[in-house]
Every structure is written in C-alpha cells, then in structure tokens.
C-alpha cells in the first residue's frame, strides 16, 4: 500500500495570512502573557526581598541612606504640596458649603479628606515621581553598566544589597511623609479658612477634632505603608530588569512612575472599599 506522499520540500507549509480578528486576539494574548510575566517577576523580587529581610548583612547603613534619600530629600515637595492642597481644598469647600450656610463644616471636611485620601495618595504619587523614578534609574544604570553583574561576581547578593534597603526605606518613610502631609495640609487649611476666609477659629478646630478620629489617621497611614511597598518594589523591579542601554534606563524610569501611580490609585480604591 502506497504511503501518502508529502510535498517535495522541507520548508514548513506557509500559514495563511491571519485575519484581523485573529491578529487582535493574538495581540491581546501577548499583552496578557506579558502582564502575567511582569506580575510574576514583581512578586518574585518582593518575595526575595522579604526572605532577605533579616539575612545578614542587614544593611542598616544603606537603609538609612535610602530613608534620607526618599524621606528627607522629598520634604520640600511634600511640604509645598501639602500646604497648597489644604489651602485650595479649603477654598473650594468653603464656596460649596457657603451655598447652604454650612461654612463651619470646612475644617472637619478638609481634615477627613486629607487624612483618609489626599495625604496618602498625593504623598505616594509624589514619592513615586521623585524617589521611585530615581531608584529605578539608578538600578537600571547599574544593570546596563554591568555593576549588578559585578555584585554577583563578587558573591554579593544584589537583592540584599540593592533591593531590600530600598523597599524597607520606602515602606518606613512614606507613612512618615504622609503624617507630615496631613499635618501641614491642615495648617494650610487653617491659614486660609481662619486667616483669609474669616471662619470662626474655635468652630474650625472643634469640627476638625470631632470629625477626624484615629481610624481616619490609621487608615491613611496603612494606605501609605502599602503605597511605600508598591513604590519600592516597582522601582526596584523596573530597574533590575532593565535592558537596552540608555534608552532602556529611560523606559524603565518612566514605566516605574506610570506603573507605581496606577497601582497606587487602584489599590487606594480597594483599601478604601475594604476598610470602613
């Protein structure tokens, strides 16, 4: 019995041109797979950093250096932004409440908004833009100039040396900056509310004290802690997996800010939803 004959060529059979629908589905599939790969790598780098948390050397000096970089060097932008955020929010709230003759509520409203939402979220976004981008750029530059390979070659774990101190510093410092943001924001609100809009000082303070309770403050600080974890992890991840020279460093830096910012905004919703 004769065998079925094959075409007399070794070349693989040509695929028919993909339709628009097929190409679209392939594109979506590629993006999903790429996203899952990114998620896996971020989780992996975070897990390695956590596993290294108490592994010697603990890197106290490097962690303090990063806390100074993330925290102290972010102070001017945090102070400026928080004061003006408190001030502008007071101004807009005053105009809205004035329509109902409820101007006295301004202090409390601004206080709750600052401690629960604006403080942690704006602090997170500012730190992601200033310190997160710099961390991604620094680690990315070290990757493309073989400095991370040099660490490996010298038997120094890059996760322990580079990633752990940055994540720990971000987690510790962002809540501190947030507390400062809340305080200075309230001062800005007080200055405009009492100083410019002539609200009653005792009423402003009473509403602020009565409406803002410890739950609001702890919720905001918890959010800040999560945002710090996001900023440190995403920045280190983007820097650590940088490829492609100077252009790659630029892309990693931009991507670090974008991904951190989006992750902060999304996680903010879920935390707000989960916590009363």
């Amino acid at each position: 019995m004769a065998k079925a004959s094959r075409p007399a060529t070794d070349a693989p059979p040509e695929r028919p041109p993909a339709s628009l629908i097929t190409r679209s589905i392939e594109g979506i599939g590629r993006r999903v797979l790429s996203g899952l790969e990114d998620l896996g790598r971020v989780t992996h780098i975070l897990a390695l950093a956590l596993a290294n948390l108490f592994v010697r050397p603990v890197r106290v000096r490097e962690t303090l250096r990063m806390m100074e970089f993330v925290g102290v060097q972010s102070l001017p932008i945090i102070l400026l932004t928080s004061a003006f955020t408190g001030a502008v929010f007071t101004l807009q709230s005053y105009r809205a409440f004035a329509m109902f003759g409820a101007q006295a509520m301004v202090g409390g409203t601004v206080g709750v908004a600052l401690t629960r939402e604006l403080g942690p979220t704006l602090t997170g976004l500012l730190v992601a833009g200033r310190a997160g981008s710099a961390m991604a750029a620094e680690i990315g530059a070290m990757r493309v100039s073989e400095q991370i390979d040099a660490l490996d070659a010298m038997a120094v774990d890059p996760i322990n040396y580079l990633v752990k101190p940055r994540i720990v510093a971000s987690v510790l410092v962002v809540p501190m900056l947030t507390a400062l943001f809340d305080f200075v924001g309230c001062l800005g609100s007080y200055a405009i509310g009492v100083g410019v809009l002539r609200l009653s000082r005792p009423e402003f303070m009473v509403r602020l004290r009565d409406w803002v309770d410890w739950d609001d403050i702890w919720t905001g600080l918890f959010k800040a802690l999560v945002f710090g974890l996001i900023i440190g992890t995403v920045a280190c991840y983007k820097g650590f997996y940088t490829t492609g020279g100077a252009r790659g460093v630029g892309l990693a830096t931009t991507s670090s800010v974008v991904v951190s910012s989006v992750a902060i905004l999304i996680s903010n919703f879920f935390i707000a939803y989960a916590l009363p």
């Binding site: 530059a141 390979d149 040099a150 070659a153 010298m154 038997a155």
Partner: peptide
C-alpha cells in the same frame, strides 16, 4: 555564591560603582 568568592573578575567596562 561561595564558589564565586574564589573568583576575581575584570569587566569589559570595569563595572565600577559610580
């Protein structure tokens, strides 16, 4: 990692820490 401690490496672009 312990094995790596027995090596010294001179990288193409030196790979010094900036």
């Amino acid at each position: 990692r312990r094995v790596r401690e027995r090596f010294g490496v001179v990288f193409q672009n030196a790979a010094l820490f900036d």
